[in-house]
Design a protein around this nucleic acid. Structure first.
Lengths: 363, 363
DNA sequence: TAGAGCCTGGACAACGTTGTCATGCGCGCG
DNA sequence: CGCGCGCATGACAACGTTGTCCAGGCTCTA
């Protein structure tokens, strides 16, 4: 009988006066948080009255409100949002899954998403997938289990059918930087194709014909698009691309360096390089600095201090902040119910000339 | 009357038998998620059995488990972690509050925290305070309301008493990069004083005596410590510091540039500059590049591509990843109950010589 | 002064999950 | 053949909050 404390407790609540109950549970035990019930007991009011005060709802006299506030203060009460979410359905939080927190490209993007979330009174939860599709899925589903209202995803994988039940259940979803796989959803992208084409055309306009391309694995959408842009520009200029001018693989220095060195040597070396992302660009800059000849360079993605190098690095810049802002705003419009059909939005890139892309071909 | 659907629904639940209820609510309505009850109904088992399957608890026959799994699959069920948290108390998530997501210094730090969290099976939620104490507090408390198990905070403000009730309630808390204000808590710092002193001493060792210092506002702890390091090195060398050699204020280019230009002009200009953080360093590099004389430079914080500039930039580097890792590990040890007293941990910095710090004084 | 109406405050259920306990079944052993 | 034991399963309460509804006391008016 006294094993079944919970039942005693419950019936007790109806029989024993409130003051006795309080003595029985001295509210703020270490490691236990005070609840609204504790606050109510201390303030000598009903549970719902505390709720009203906490949420700023009308219908509470100033005097009562003061008593409740004092109790909240004294106990260090903080509303338990888990319980609130459970009751209300919406969490006022959105998730952001990016690929690598340490990549400077994602800083401004993440920040832009946070700004928009904040403007909508929502909290941003983010995690990084480390470019691993499995981890991306794991993270996305964990966030959904937490019942975020929406997700901004920079995809690592190429199949997002696992999100179908979530989207159907009303989780707003926007993909950024790369499109979603096998699923209809909003996507916000940079114009990777056009940007790369323009960058390569810029080199061609400066007299180059043997132009190298160093990019990421083509299974990554952005990498494939940039490669396509390179090919298009070359074709437009009537230049036949040789296989030895292209490197499509990992972007770590250990792999990029030999690739760059290879296309810069031999009987007919390239006179210019188009590097298809910021990591590649950094390595290529190092390699070019060691070359006796001046080799032209245009990089995709801006890099910090690019203007201070000799020569300054000409780049095709994406507007990371705009990507994030656009995606987040679209997400909240989904939540408003303003949006209907998924859309694909492409933001323009910008060619920034700083010197390296304007070097003439050197033998 | 038919405006008041929820009530109809609710009373309906008590009167109508379970099977009828199911028809009345065909489980996955758009915008409504299936619950364990829905799964149980579909699989023809009890609620608790579903819970057991979902959590991999023993005591379920393979056949029953299969039926439940099928129902889960068919309905696209996903456990509601809010409810779970409410019941269990722990959330398996920690919060990280940093100062600016876009600052490259915080990328590796944030990533390191995430790695550790992941290793402990926890989710990382992070937000940035944008250097605003009020926003820091707002964020921290929002995370506590979400019942994160712990907080890693890079302080923006200097009074953290608002966290007292949370810490008392068992929220593990570690401060990084800057100490907590008016509260006893774990702190993980870089050796800002020692690093700055060594950096300045390095310049002195190369013959400089008129050395400028450009740093952040001294109300920021790291800035104050680095200034202290500068003064200590100068004093050790018996050099009297002149006020015109120091600039202590905002770190935006609009403010740093004139400050740098001022100390580089006049009858007795400085021959070397110690820039006390990465943002300052970048601006100083730009200014120095415009100077006719060669001015030596040592910066606090490493910057990307520092080795590719002419000359390479000598820096006092902090190990951001180590800061994050150390803090996160300490946080989880708090949660384990392994830790007792708050501690202050200082990690060493490292002087990386690349050329700019080794230039001799030039008139 | 009585009745209507408003305002404040509280009781209670429900959100979806998990822990506790009870039940019923089959089986082995005495 | 009966008793007890172990196992699979389910009923039920509880986590802390919010929405709904009702009660009691007040004011205002006829």
């Amino acid at each position: 009988m006294d094993r079944r404390i919970p039942v005693d407790d419950r019936t007790g609540r109806r029989i024993v006066p409130e003051t006795a109950r309080r003595a029985d549970r001295p509210a703020p035990r270490y490691g236990t948080r005070p609840t609204m019930k504790d606050v109510a007991a201390r303030a000598g009011v009903g549970l719902k009255t505390v709720s009203r005060v906490v949420n700023g709802e009308p219908g509470v006299t100033p005097d009562t409100e003061r008593r409740v506030q004092e109790a909240i203060e004294a106990l260090g009460f903080r509303r338990n949002d888990s319980a609130r979410v459970l009751r209300k359905g919406r969490t006022a939080s959105i998730g952001l899954i990016l690929e690598d927190l340490a990549d400077p490209f994602y800083g401004p993007l993440s920040r832009a998403v946070e700004e928009v979330a904040r403007a909508h009174g929502a909290l941003l939860i983010n995690g990084s997938s480390a470019e691993d599709p499995e981890r991306e899925q794991e993270l996305a589903l964990a966030l959904c289990a937490r019942r975020v209202d929406g997700l901004v995803v920079i995809p690592a994988g190429d199949d997002h059918r696992y999100l179908e039940p979530e989207i159907k259940a009303g989780v707003a979803t926007v993909f950024v930087d790369r499109p979603a796989g096998h699923i209809a959803a909003d996507v916000v992208l940079s114009d990777n194709f056009g940007g790369a084409r323009d960058g390569v055309a810029h080199l061609i306009a400066h007299g180059h014909r043997r132009i190298g391309f160093i990019g990421d694995m083509p299974r990554i959408h952005t990498a494939a698009e940039r490669l396509r842009g390179y090919r298009a520009a070359m074709e437009d200029a009537g230049i036949a691309v040789e296989d030895s001018w292209m490197s499509l693989g990992a972007t770590d220095p250990g792999r990029v360096r030999p690739a760059a060195e290879a296309m810069l040597s031999g009987p007919a070396p390239v006179t210019a390089v188009f590097s298809a992302n910021n990591r590649v660009t950094v390595t290529v800059i190092r390699v070019l600095a060691e070359q006796p000849r001046r080799v032209a360079l245009v990089g995709f993605d801006d890099i910090e201090l690019a203007d201070l190098l000799q020569p300054g690095v000409t780049v095709v810049a994406q507007d990371a902040a705009a990507l994030g802002r656009t995606a987040a705003e679209r997400l909240f419009r989904q939540l408003d119910g303003t949006l209907v059909a998924p859309e694909r939005i492409e933001l323009p890139t910008r060619l920034i000339t700083r010197g390296s892309g304007e070097l003439p071909p050197a033998e």
